[in-house]
Design a protein around this nucleic acid. Structure first.
Lengths: 358, 358
DNA sequence: TTGTACGCGTTATCAT
DNA sequence: ATGATAACGCGTACAA
């Protein structure tokens, strides 16, 4: 009747002349208690028939599958693809990786976790940023809790407070160190392309940057803090908005690299030279940066390693409470914040800080 | 005994006071033949209990899962992540997407297809390049055939001859057109960073480029055709090798953009200016190109659209033979092949073509 | 050690 | 329209 299309374990058992259970034992290797001779026969039959275990049937019988979920916001964004690559490299030997792409829609995240629950996935890596929207956060947290309750394991990257293991980059400290470094290079008049204020990551970087400046007796005028999407287009638009808002600052900090690249493009289009007319810095050190000119100052995060670490945490047989793994960020000064000759000639003290923007 | 951890359809049926079959009918909506009242009751019970259908059980019962596989060589490479993003966008509404990362190991490809067979995946998108190794190709083709025989659907991108639908970019014609354009800009003395000679894609582009030059009475000296990996590092190394081999040509063609970026970096490190000392062109038009300076001449492929098209082909209920969808490539001339002033001043005829490299 | 039989959560066939 | 009941392919107590 039904067109039997794939070889089943029963076929293998029949051909090997053994029972289904014996065949099962040698194939999945649960217990070693099988005679070498039978073992041979089963293995032979399996390979002759081209047998492939039905993973779904296994998952149903075992009550758990070997799928591993990885969720990112945008797989075409180098930040996410780098982390995803690291996570996949680590996870691949342990099971099949399912990669989800939220397209930056927060409502998709709980949905994805639900899907993974339905798949009885054993481990989950959630890469993203916590968002200020309490409803969304609650929905996501609820799904994660349900997933955990069902015996799954979860590790988040960059979004603490989910009740799961977390790999957390030093957004605040990194931005603070960057501010120090820029102030020490003599920059005095700053602007920040701050990203969406709903994104915790963006907000932390802004806060850290301001703290760092404050430690040097500097600050960013409110009018020079430009919000916008966390993307290249967002950076582009924010840079244009900055130009509209008033005279150019010494130095612009975009809270991530893709935004910085957008800003760089906007400046180029407007005939504004970086770093001669304005300095520019980003955050993340995405691989793409190796090929842009001028070389972009940034705060390096070990993206691939973060993904690997997260996958390892999600995969390890963990007893005990959720762990928080902090990841250091390192300031990398490059061409885009080389002080222009005119400024470098003067002593920093010669530059009164007075806020140009009121 | 067993810790019942997830809500099952039976729980829902019991709570709704209906039979398992009825509950199944309203949940999966197979037949509409359910009284509105019962329907309400089941839906209510399901949502109260937080019921999630076990996809594995469904897959076992139905004999086919709703998984969709996408295989790429390197998810961190913009070429692949762009195509993958397109494929995922198209596929996501139809099922869960499983993304595989071969890390450019050809032996992983048949393995991935086998895994997808084991998962009873319904559709498969294979992104990559056909490799000259007959053994590998045969292994892959065999797995694809088995997958097809089991009722699955497949679409390949850039690797024809797999017995599946194929989305095939115009590698040859694109490279030919590029050669024409460069010759028309006055370049006479060329080198090609040709990639691995085992990769069909690389070979086709090289061949097309040579054809295009030949049509203008030009050619590339053998010594100026440098092989190497299809990656940024490969391009970097190949550019250095080119420098070692002899004097600089007018113009270098790297058979893909990431190689061109590697070459660009190598030139920059060596103090060689592009395009003033040497012109440079790539192939693909990856998104990254928007941020490199000088802007890189390339041959544009609609990467995202190709991914979408491939997923659509793999998903569509196709009767009939495998289809071959050709995708046009478009030459995009940018700054990196602006003719230097000195050359532009002279007439092309003033530049004897004589091969500098013997 | 091996085989029998039952269970996993669904779908689908068949009477009712 | 609804409800038993038999698959689906596999894992695994339990008995032999």
């Amino acid at each position: 009747m039904t067109r039997r299309v794939a070889v089943t374990l029963e076929d293998v058992a029949r051909r090997a002349g053994v029972s289904l259970s014996t065949a099962s034992r040698v194939i999945n290797g649960s217990t070693r208690s099988v005679t070498p001779e039978f073992r041979e026969r089963v293995l032979g039959a399996a390979s002759e028939l081209g047998y492939l275990p039905n993973r779904h049937a296994q998952a149903v019988a075992r009550g758990r599958s070997s799928l591993i979920g990885v969720l990112v916001h945008d797989i075409a964004d180098p930040y996410f693809s780098s982390i995803a690559a690291g996570a996949m490299r680590e996870a691949e030997p342990h099971g099949m990786v399912v990669l989800g792409n939220s397209l930056r829609r927060p409502e998709y995240e709980p949905e994805f976790v639900a899907t993974m629950r339905a798949q009885r996935t054993r481990a989950l890596v959630l890469v993203g940023s916590r968002v200020r929207d309490a409803g969304r956060t609650r929905a996501l947290r609820a799904e994660v809790a349900a997933f955990l309750a069902e015996g799954g394991q979860v590790c988040a990257v960059g979004q603490p407070g989910l009740g799961a293991h977390t790999v957390q980059p030093a957004n605040r400290a990194g931005a603070r160190a960057l501010a120090h470094a820029l102030a020490d290079r003599g920059y005095r008049d700053f602007a920040v392309l701050r990203g969406p204020d709903a994104l915790l990551t963006a907000t932390e970087r802004l806060a850290g940057f301001c703290e760092g400046l404050a430690a040097r007796g500097l600050s960013v005028p409110d009018a020079a803090v430009i919000p916008g999407p966390f993307t290249r287009e967002g950076g582009h638009a924010a840079a244009l908005a900055l130009l509209e808002a008033g005279p150019l600052p010494d130095c612009v900090f975009a809270v991530n690299d893709v935004m910085a690249l957008g800003a760089l493009a906007a400046f180029r289009e407007q005939g504004i030279a970086v770093p001669d007319d304005v300095a520019l810095a980003g955050f993340d050190d995405i691989p793409t940066l190796r090929d842009v000119a001028p070389a972009l100052t940034t705060v390096r995060l070990p993206l691939t390693a973060m993904g690997q670490r997260a996958a390892a945490l999600a995969l390890e047989a963990s007893a005990g409470p959720p762990r928080l793994v902090r990841v250091d960020a390192e300031v990398v000064l490059r061409e885009s914040t080389r002080r222009p000759v005119a400024m470098a000639a003067a002593t920093p003290a010669a530059h009164p800080t007075g806020s140009r923007r009121t």
